[in-house]
Computed example of a mutant assay.
Amino acid sequence: MKEYDIKITETLEKTVTVKAESMEAAQAKVEEEYYNSEHILDSENFTGVDFSAEAEREIVQEQKEQLDVLLVKPGMYPQAVQIGGELEDLQKAVGGDIEAVYPYNEPVALIVNDEGKLNGSELNRALRDNEGQIYDIVAGDFLVVGLGEENFASLSPELMEKFEKEFHQPEMFVRMGRSIMALPLPDDKVKAADAPLKSESIPQKSSPDRDVL
């Protein structure tokens, strides 16, 4: 399909009678009266319409920017995916309003659900400091994205590989008194991509002081 510019020309005509010394003077007098709004043409003076094609163009579809990012879901291995870079695309990927956090020196951000911990989302991966101590836990699905000059960007192949290794093994979380431990989820309990979690793979509570969250 193409785009076309079509000119529509309507013709209005009106004859007025004036007294003058010559044809040229009569025409000049009517022109002056016309520009002084003494002669108004309206629909009663319509005499015809003409249509003419002016230009032809190919329609160029605007390509939506796609980002190569890492999607990390609870109980699953990370998945390299392509998503749109608009706000609604990021919100859809994590299931709600987003928050960007920057826990690494590399030019990456974690896009998380801003209310993941409040809405009961499943705990996903632990974030650790340089000494390996847990300082936070991400709840719900999250993305690892690159950083551009002004917006989020695709991950480079090197960063994609690095953070796939960083978050490769899904984790289960065990409460020990007031602290929480993150344990690797056994491979036979890892969910296939986009597959529902089987009930028998959900760890059960063992004691009041040792609860699997």
Score class of each variant (00 low, 15 high):
residue 87 L to Q: 15
residue 145 V to I: 08
residue 201 S to Y: 10
residue 92 K to F: 04
residue 113 N to A: 01
residue 51 F to Y: 15
residue 109 A to Y: 06
residue 179 S to G: 12
residue 62 E to M: 07
residue 156 S to A: 08
residue 159 L to Y: 15
residue 144 V to S: 03
residue 113 N to Q: 01
residue 21 E to N: 13
residue 200 E to Q: 14
residue 65 E to M: 09
residue 180 I to Y: 10
residue 13 E to L: 12
residue 78 P to F: 01
residue 156 S to R: 07
residue 98 I to P: 06
residue 176 M to I: 13
residue 56 E to I: 14
residue 51 F to H: 11
residue 89 D to T: 03
residue 17 T to S: 11
residue 91 Q to F: 03
residue 202 I to E: 05
residue 33 E to N: 11
residue 204 Q to I: 08
residue 38 E to N: 15
residue 98 I to T: 14
residue 132 G to H: 07
residue 55 A to M: 09
residue 150 E to P: 05
residue 191 K to R: 14
residue 157 P to K: 09
residue 70 L to Q: 06
residue 133 Q to D: 05
residue 160 M to A: 14
residue 112 V to D: 00
residue 32 E to T: 11
residue 124 N to C: 06
residue 185 L to D: 02
residue 163 F to N: 01
residue 17 T to W: 12
residue 26 A to L: 08
residue 94 V to L: 00
residue 141 D to S: 04
residue 109 A to P: 04
residue 61 Q to V: 11
residue 15 T to W: 06
residue 123 L to R: 00
residue 53 A to L: 15
residue 187 D to A: 13
residue 130 N to C: 02
residue 140 G to D: 00
residue 117 K to S: 12
residue 129 D to N: 15
residue 13 E to A: 15
residue 80 A to K: 13
residue 168 H to Q: 13
residue 6 I to D: 05
residue 151 N to T: 11
residue 131 E to R: 07
residue 157 P to C: 07
residue 41 L to K: 10
residue 10 E to G: 10
residue 168 H to I: 03
residue 144 V to D: 02
residue 37 S to C: 06
residue 208 P to R: 14
residue 67 L to C: 05
residue 34 Y to L: 11
residue 67 L to I: 07
residue 18 V to I: 10
residue 213 L to F: 04
residue 167 F to L: 09
residue 33 E to I: 03
residue 130 N to E: 09
residue 13 E to Y: 02
residue 85 G to L: 02
residue 30 V to W: 04
residue 24 E to M: 10
residue 175 R to M: 13
residue 96 G to Y: 03
residue 192 A to C: 05
residue 203 P to Y: 05
residue 149 E to W: 02
residue 34 Y to A: 10
residue 98 I to H: 05
residue 108 V to H: 07
residue 173 F to L: 01
residue 71 L to Y: 08
residue 102 Y to E: 10
residue 112 V to K: 00
residue 83 I to F: 06
residue 51 F to G: 03
residue 148 G to S: 03
residue 119 N to I: 15
residue 55 A to K: 15
residue 104 Y to L: 08
residue 194 D to M: 03
residue 212 V to M: 12
residue 36 N to M: 07
residue 149 E to C: 02
residue 192 A to L: 14
residue 19 K to A: 10
residue 123 L to S: 02
residue 73 K to M: 09
residue 118 L to K: 15
residue 53 A to D: 01
residue 189 K to V: 04
residue 163 F to V: 02
